[in-house]
Simulated scan of single mutants.
Amino acid sequence: MWAELLPVGRSAASGGYRRHAWNTADAECRAWFEQQARARGLHYELDRNGNQWAWLGDPQGEGAIVTGSHLDSVPDGGAFDGPLGVVSSFAALDRLREREARFTKPLAIVNFGDEEGARFGVACVGSRLAAGVLTPEQAFELRDADGVRLPDAMERAGQDPTAIGADPARLGRIGAFVELHVEQGRYLAEDQSVGVASAIWPHGRWRFDFHGEANHAGTTRLDDRHDPMLTYANTVLSARKKARLAGALATFGKISVEPNGTNAIASLVRGWLDSRAADEATLTELVEQIHQAAAERGERDGVKVELVRESYTPVVEFDGPLRDRLARTLHGAPVLPTGAGHDAGILASAVPTAMLFVRNPSGVSHSPAEHAELADCLAGVSALADVLEDLACQ
């Protein structure tokens, strides 16, 4: 399975993946998921929000145990973030069938759509829509860098955008959702192949708009400029300093510039901030401090600064009894928090959720260098199989 999926959407230039929502590579990943489901005799289903489901047992049954993750990527992302969870889910089911496990509850494997938000700027679109966290009206306003609207992209890919929306009946039939994911960061020790998640830090994305004045780079005196690039650059440095002092994280990883000419002073710089902290109060204060510093610098530069919050996820404490049950099943596996968002975090408000992490020896993620050792991946399959057997075969 891993070898089949590995080339899909991979850039020959960077070695990274460009599996973005509703593009050609995404369609290939979806076709692969459907093929895997049908090859195992599972009931394949595409829900109203574009999420894919593979069911063993009655899809309408109560108390279903669900596992899975996502197949899309960040721009030039790694091979493991998302796909490891989906591949491991099918492999865990294969292992349980080899054990002749007797299922007493429906079991499903899911591929949530547009988890990374690489194309339309909002993460976990498929699970957010299902949970009612993102409304259809909000989704219809999302556009990619080329101005393509989300509903238009969905329609071109064969999905009915008019059907999107909350799916409480489906979520209400789920007894537990367990997502396996490659570790992001490096916290598991060398002899710890698998860990259990305790919580997800609160996190969000904010857009900073720096409005200046376009002018000629070769003729405009420095004192006569209203250069938004200066304000933006100062804000990037300020964000790093303030995040370090707060024990939090703040990253400007995306930027757009108008008119984007080499010999032109910019009229507008847009920078997207990703920020995360251990608690919501710290995160709120940090973003306010970054905004204040940007505004103060903007006054000196003659630049107007506007701030728009594009997405936000509060702190997620995974279901305590379920988390503890996983740790016991895995004979005291380490329990650790994460700063990365996941579909499991979005669903946690509606469904008992938990996560397993597979050790990442380098700690690198969202990069072609992302990696997990084969032995640890196989240990992850075994752990997931043990967890699913405990939950779905009792």
Results as ranks from 00 to 15, higher is better:
W2A: 06
G9N: 05
G9R: 00
A13Y: 00
H20G: 12
W22D: 09
T24E: 14
A25V: 10
E28C: 08
R38H: 01
A39F: 04
R40C: 02
L42H: 07
H43V: 15
G68N: 00
L71G: 06
V74Y: 09
D81A: 03
V86A: 01
S88Q: 12
S89R: 06
A91R: 13
R95F: 04
L96M: 13
F112I: 04
E115D: 12
Q138L: 07
D144M: 09
V148F: 11
A153Q: 10
D167M: 04
L171D: 01
A176H: 00
E179C: 04
E179Y: 00
L180D: 02
G185W: 03
Y187D: 10
L188T: 06
Q192L: 07
S193A: 15
P202S: 06
P202Y: 07
P202H: 02
G204M: 09
W206M: 11
R207P: 11
A217Q: 11
M229V: 14
L230N: 14
A239D: 10
R240D: 14
K241R: 15
A248R: 02
G261D: 11
A266M: 13
S267Q: 14
D274E: 13
R276F: 13
A277F: 13
D279C: 07
A281E: 14
L283Y: 09
A293I: 06
E299Y: 00
V308F: 09
F318A: 11
L322R: 08
V335Q: 10
G339V: 12
H342N: 10
A348K: 10
S349A: 15
A354G: 15
M355N: 04
L356C: 02
L356D: 08
V358Q: 09
V364Q: 08
H371F: 14
A379K: 02
A385S: 14
D386Q: 12
